[in-house]
């Protein structure tokens, strides 16, 4: 009950400090493995398209399921880096796994942080998960 109250209170007494500072941003990559010890090739989870047509942008005001889920996965990555929990890890894992057709495989994901240092973009590895079997 106390935990629920902790989740609800920031909504009832909001801070509204949107975009007060632009922190380094998580990027999620995953590797499909044939066994837990396999290395595999890293692929970006849902890379953004090079272009989105204006008509499609307007359409997404009405239907944006995939993008909103991607934002949720990113917020799970931020939570995982701030305070590791099984929930965040499991959400990221399951949402990546749903996109993998091969269900006789193992999966590992990693999170890197992209930010800026001395005016140049830098990318630093922040987390690598254990390998799990794709359910």
């Amino acid at each position: 009950m106390l935990q629920l109250l902790k989740l609800l209170l920031p909504a009832l007494i909001p801070s509204w400090n949107f975009f007060d500072e632009i922190a380094a941003s998580p990027r999620i990559e995953y590797a499909v493995l044939s066994s837990p010890d396999d290395v595999g090739d890293w692929r970006e989870f849902r890379p953004r398209p090079s272009r989105v047509a204006l008509f499609a942008m307007i359409g997404r005001v009405f239907w944006n399921a995939r993008w909103n889920e991607t934002l949720f996965v990113v917020s799970c990555a931020e939570r995982l880096l701030a305070e590791p929990t099984a929930h965040s890890q499991s959400e990221i894992f399951h949402r990546i796994a749903r996109e993998i057709p091969d269900n006789d495989a193992w999966l590992r994901f990693r999170i890197s942080l992209v930010g800026e240092r001395d005016g140049a973009l830098v990318r630093e590895m922040a987390f690598i998960s254990e390998a799990r079997r794709v359910p």
Partner: peptide, 21 residues
Amino acid sequence: LFVLQRFQGPYNGGSDRMGLL
């Protein structure tokens, strides 16, 4: 409350918080 519990917080940050409020 069940939705908050399910996602351990808002699903989509500030917009869901305004919806809850």
